[in-house]
Amino acid sequence: MLEIKNLHANAGDEPILRGIDLEIAAGEVHAVMGPNGSGKSTLSNILAGRPGYSVTHGEVLYAGQDLTQLEPEERAREGIFLAFQYPVEIPGVSNNYFLKASVNAVRAHRGEPELDAMEFLALSQEKMKAVDMPADLMNRSINEGFSGGEKKRNEVLQMLLLEPQLSILDETDSGLDIDALRVVAQGVNSLRSPDRAMLVITHYQRLLDYIVPDRVHVLSAGRIVRSGGKDLALELEEKGYGWIEEASA
């Protein structure tokens, strides 16, 4: 589903990714781990098309097409979803209005009929139960005044509503207590299916207890220095990143 070939990329003018190769097939969950500054967030921003990040070399293919040529909203409509590390607050725009507009934009692209207010209400209520989100959050401004946990639940709620083909979770575990983590992970796991893929970016192994990956990759200084099965995460937890960086040096 996703093929990354020798990807070099800049954040601003600064080179961050220095040759990434990664292939994710439908049905797979991959985890990318790495110390701060290793390029994890740059990878997720490149995939989602955040302005200010640029590909200098290499290829990113999504379902066979060149992802880098698409606008951020086109990528979203094609089924790429980024759960933000820091979900953005937008004052004055209700969560409900925003999500309905978002869901309908994606549906229209898929050739599905748009949901009216009642249909959307029914759908959102169902999904909100799944992430244990209080009803009043739908009527508040997007992420404004939400706690860290509420923001992350809101991200997962959006993911459930949009049913993306490729979900990228950028440090979704940061700032979550153990109960919230469990709820979030449950939501994510409920989306796992043979035709969907996920890329879980995290600093800690903790999240991977709940979202068990098929493959784990370790990112260091803009390169994948090691790949392995889920046990690699445990090994990292035990020995720290220093071990891997030394080994690869």
Partner: peptide, 23 residues
């Protein structure tokens, strides 16, 4: 970017943010 990542076109995103600003 957040709005566009959720599939909204840029002009819809601007209009939405401006309307929120004026709420």
């Amino acid at each position: 970017f957040y709005c566009r990542q959720r599939g909204l076109s840029e002009e819809d995103a601007i209009s939405m943010i401006v309307n929120g600003f004026c709420k």
